[in-house]
Computed example of a mutant assay.
Amino acid sequence: MHEMREVLALERQSGTASWIECFSSRSRVPKTRYRTLLGMGLHFLQQWTGINYFFYYGTTIFSTAHIKDPFLMQLILGAVNVATTFLAVYLVDRFGRRWPLILGAIWQAVWLMIFASIGTATSHSSPSSTYGVVMILSSCMFIASFAATWGPIAWVVMGETFALRTRAKQASLATAANWLGNFLIGFLTPHADRGLSYAFGFILASANLAAAAIVWMYLYESSLLSLESVDIMYSMHDIVPWESARWVPPGYVTRRERDEQHFRRLSIQEMVEMANKDASVKSDENAAQGSQV
């Protein structure tokens, strides 16, 4: 109850940010512009993973691949999408946010390359049932990965990354970026299909690899953290994203277990100040060690 009262008090004090503040480097919220651009980038790339390349134009793509019933193929892809979405609940709880997104993007890139390679190699040759089966398998493996990782987890990340003061507007910007990516896929795919044919899959595979790199370099691990603890983590100056999974918020023994006495003694605002003080001390110690060397 003490923690809940502190959170509500902080929420009332934080107020509402302007649209300009979401891109400001002088905002009262730590790393506001960083988090805005990260959310927009992830949601734009969610569409450029290639999911709607299959769902919007799958029948056209598979008909040119000499698959007898492309509409049945679309039904199969939809069934795979629904079935594997439930796997995301396990993955996000067991492995957090970063690794499912990174490995999912790499997995998707691999199967897109296989799909594009076979499609490009056989586009001017006689149809082969073996090649058709591999292309169907590739698309199903891609859909399964997206449904279990980038489909739902990108939205989980958006809900956990933004601070109280700027959350509503940053979430709106991320959603707008998602729809922009969706529009570009829908608009460009017919032209890319005529000009590049299956080679367009290589571009989508590259987008997946770029998405994996962005998650690795910029996304902090928010698994098992409250929204307020996520805000504290982003305010720390000595944490890098690829080591953020090991960070434990002040007053916690692990991310699952907290020190009740600590929460009774300190307010959340005091914990933020204490965390920043600890980070400053560690930074000074590292600088001193570096100068001695």
Rank of each mutant, 00 (worst) to 15 (best):
H2N: 08
M4K: 08
E6C: 05
A9T: 11
E21W: 06
F23L: 11
F23S: 08
S25Q: 10
S25V: 07
K31A: 13
T32W: 06
Y34P: 15
T36C: 10
T36D: 02
G39Y: 07
L45G: 03
N52F: 07
K68G: 04
D69W: 05
P70V: 05
F71D: 14
L72A: 15
Q74V: 01
G78R: 03
A88I: 02
F95R: 03
A105D: 13
Q108R: 03
W111K: 05
G119P: 13
S123F: 10
T130L: 06
V134L: 13
S139Y: 01
A144M: 14
T149L: 11
W150A: 10
G151W: 00
I153E: 02
W155L: 14
R165K: 15
R165Y: 05
A174V: 01
N178W: 01
N182W: 09
A192F: 15
D193V: 07
D193T: 09
G195R: 13
L196I: 10
L196S: 07
L196T: 06
A199N: 10
A199C: 07
F202T: 12
I203C: 12
A205D: 06
S206R: 00
S206W: 05
L209S: 07
L224R: 12
S229E: 15
V230D: 04
A245I: 08
V248S: 06
P249I: 03
V253E: 11
T254K: 07
E257K: 07
R258C: 09
E260F: 11
V272F: 10
N276K: 04
D284N: 13
E285S: 05
Q289P: 00
G290K: 15
S291A: 14
Q292V: 12
Q292N: 05
